[in-house]
Amino acid sequence: MDIIVCIKRVAQTAEADVKIDSSGKDIVKDRLTFDMNESDTYALEEAILLKEKFGGTLTAVSLGTVQAEDTLRIALAKGADSAIRIKAEDFEGLDGYKTAQLLKAAIKDLKFDVVFTGCIATDDYYSQVGVTLAELLGVPHATLVTKIDIQDTKAQVHRELEGGLIEHLDMTLPALFTIQTGINEPRYASLIAIRRAAKKEIKVIGASEIEPTGIQANASLEELFTPPAGKRAEILSGSMDEISAKVAGIIKEKGLI
């Protein structure tokens, strides 16, 4: 089984201050930490599990700056056989569509039975790269996948719908799946695997290797801004004792206890 997994390196912002930079079109990144996008860690693990079960090859692909190579190398250490970085610095005005076009250009000549992506990138939040890529590659897809059972070229797939309802599909490979978090338990790379991965070459492709040139993005950024305050919680202040007394008061007042 030949597998491709698309991996994005993203800023970790859940617990960080996010500030707009002076250009007004990007965020201040120097104090942020970057790591593999959350659902991509699950996509990678799913790919490794498949490879362990069926053999074959596993290629990790990322569109990103040179730092994305650190993330790809972790993928190599965890179980990918080879890795490709598409030089993000060669391209401007990337959006989900252009990203998918570039990913396609990078993998179209590879053999594959399955392509995995994450279901959403936690920085840009589009949830569109996987499905767009499937369309460009001309293969069927399923999003928000929480279970895959493969036999020969058949896949039994569970998708997660709203309210925790599961949709069960029968699919035929080759296909693309966007993976939802929680589908498996991502591993840590072993030290030996890390040492082997450090020596592996990462293939880097830039604008000159990408056909067709001049892919147009669908969207361009006009401005970034802090979400309007809207409704704002009344922030309770004072000592912990005072705050707690206030909360207890609120609970009592509403007759909840």
């Binding site: 650190d70 190398r73 972790i74 250490a77 840590y188 890390i194 040492r195 991965a197 450090a198």
Partner: peptide, 16 residues
């Protein structure tokens, strides 16, 4: 740090 040291640090940190 070398590549393998960086990776080692990353994975051990997460594990820890």
């Amino acid at each position: 740090l070398t590549n393998d040291q960086k990776m080692l640090q990353d994975q051990v940190k997460k594990f820890a």
